[in-house]
Amino acid sequence: MDILVLVKNVPEVAEADLEIEDNQIDLEDLVMGINEWDNYAVEEAVRLAEASGGGVTVMTLGDEEAEDVLRRGLAMGAGRAMHLCDEEFEGSDPATLARAFAAAIGDESYDLILCGVQSSDLGQASTGVLLAQVLNLPFATMAIGIETGEAEITVTRELEANTSERVVLPLPALVTVQSGINQPRYVSIMGIRKVRKMTIGLFEADDLGLDEDQVGEEASQVAGRALALPEVGEGAEMLNGSLDEICGRAVEIIREKGGLS
């Protein structure tokens, strides 16, 4: 089974102090890494390819630094990497990205295309399914299980409220992968070093036959975008004082509200 995985380089923001400049978050001091959902997708692809025979290709669209997520994919077991890297792509919306990915895929035939359900930065959860539409492929989102069969796969989709559903897709197909589907392997620095000499295919918009008006802001459906930091602790009464004091107060609240005497 030949599998393509789309991956994205994203900032880790969980404990970071974010700053906004010109309606972009300042990435200067942020650690970048593979989008969490994409990491699960790469792991799933490598496992499926190992079990069925076949290769894994990882593809990203991003700046030069985004090469790191491709190297990581190679270290996890992908055999080939493609990097769509061009300033022209900046400001693209998911539909535009989907068309760029489709152009990069061209005539190549994959049995399966995997994407993360969403990216942790913008969380639009739409590029994968939009790509399926451009390529005219059957698709399923929110996969927490993929079983392979004869020219088809059975996907377990996570629904709401601790329920899931099983659906069958004929191959080729596109599936978006939910976190927790597997336990992704650890990638060591040694592992990354081992793949440092592997060639990564580099593509600009021109190479994909895309004109200026087919990429970036011009092709995007968005006219304007503004970012803002919400008020800190909006809603919560922040307990102040020494550790001893705030914990003492917290225990009082738990006792009172929890009905403990």
Binding site: A14, E15, A16, D17, L18, L229, P230, V232, G233, E234, G235, A236, E237, M238, L239, L243, I246, C247, A250, I253, I254, K257, G258
Partner: peptide
């Protein structure tokens, strides 16, 4: 939930928006 108490090192963690009491710790 009746009363939400959130403990997080990050003062900008979104949990503080729904918590009733917050401890940055």
């Amino acid at each position: 939930s009746g009363t939400i108490i959130a403990v997080n090192k990050d003062p900008r963690a979104p949990i503080f928006a729904v918590a009733h009491y917050g401890l940055v710790a």
